[in-house]
Simulated assay, not measured.
Amino acid sequence: MDISVTTEAWTVENRSWLGSRDGTPYTESITLHVPSFTANLHYPDGFIPSGILLAKYTSGPNVGLWGPYAGATSESQTVTITGSPTGGTFTLTFDGETTAGIAYNASAAAVKDALAALPGVTGNDITVTGGPGPGTPFVVGFKGQFAGENVPQMTASGSGLTGGSTPAVTVTTTTAGGSGNTSGLDVPEGFLWNSTHLRAGGAERIGAPLLWRGVIRVNRLPANSGLDEAARTALAAKFRFKG
């Protein structure tokens, strides 16, 4: 007779992050790669909570298995005016399109308006901080449709600037966009449907269901869900986000 003590872990399922039943009858069976999840981050109490954002390995030794979405960094670029101009304008060129002239002493809002007026760009796609010129650089952040992407670096022309000592405008990439993860985990695919029990040192692979379309209440997702702006943009065709 075996009289050893055994324990079993339980959790109460919480899907308050789900906004409707749309998509729930069509979950997909996948296989998680357990070592890809970090105990203290993804399953501190022994369970990966439902609502964790997942991605699929497309290269390397774990092809076909699933792990946590690795996230992506949105790009920022710094525009600096040198030579202390006292008048005139400068321009910025992004992806082949050039802005109208921007005043040498423009505010951050004016630089944003000039960029947002370019074809294919909206005010929701960029942020601009810093300024006013020429004394303080402008930092252009890319979001919206450009969230998480390694966008082309802007170029600038200071030929319209006057006064000062050989005024010019330079652009440098402050933070490169995109992800250093090339295994596929930088491409979000869907959310874990069932809270899943994991044990460090246990099975390397475990089956789980994936919700790949539906309505998500963002403010109810688990704190470690991994959802970022880049993921929201990438998943917009499959999911509707509330909050």
Rank of each mutant, 00 (worst) to 15 (best):
T38V: 15
V5A: 14
K143N: 13
G177T: 10
A231N: 09
E13H: 04
T172L: 00
D22S: 12
V63H: 08
G226H: 00
F37E: 07
A100I: 09
N62V: 03
K242E: 10
T86N: 09
A147K: 06
R199C: 02
A100T: 14
G190W: 08
Y26E: 14
V5K: 13
S195V: 07
N124R: 06
G190M: 06
P152W: 12
E75F: 02
A234S: 15
P152Y: 09
A230T: 10
T89Y: 11
G164M: 10
H33E: 12
I206T: 09
W193D: 01
T7H: 04
G46K: 08
G131M: 10
S107M: 13
P167G: 06
S84E: 12
T173Y: 00
V171Q: 10
Y69R: 10
S74V: 02
L211S: 03
N150S: 15
G51A: 03
G46R: 07
T91R: 03
T166N: 14
S157G: 09
A55C: 10
T136I: 15
I216W: 00
F239A: 02
S74W: 00
F47Q: 00
T182M: 08
A103S: 15
I81H: 10
G163Y: 12
I81C: 07
A108Q: 06
T93G: 10
T196W: 02
G214I: 07
G160C: 03
S20P: 01
E204H: 07
P68H: 01
D2C: 01
P188G: 06
R220S: 06
A223L: 15
S183N: 15
T91M: 08
K112V: 03
A236F: 05
S74F: 08
L210V: 08
A200N: 13
A223T: 14
G123C: 05
T136S: 13
A114G: 05
R15K: 14
K143Q: 15
D45Y: 01
L161C: 07
G158V: 12
I30M: 04
S29L: 10
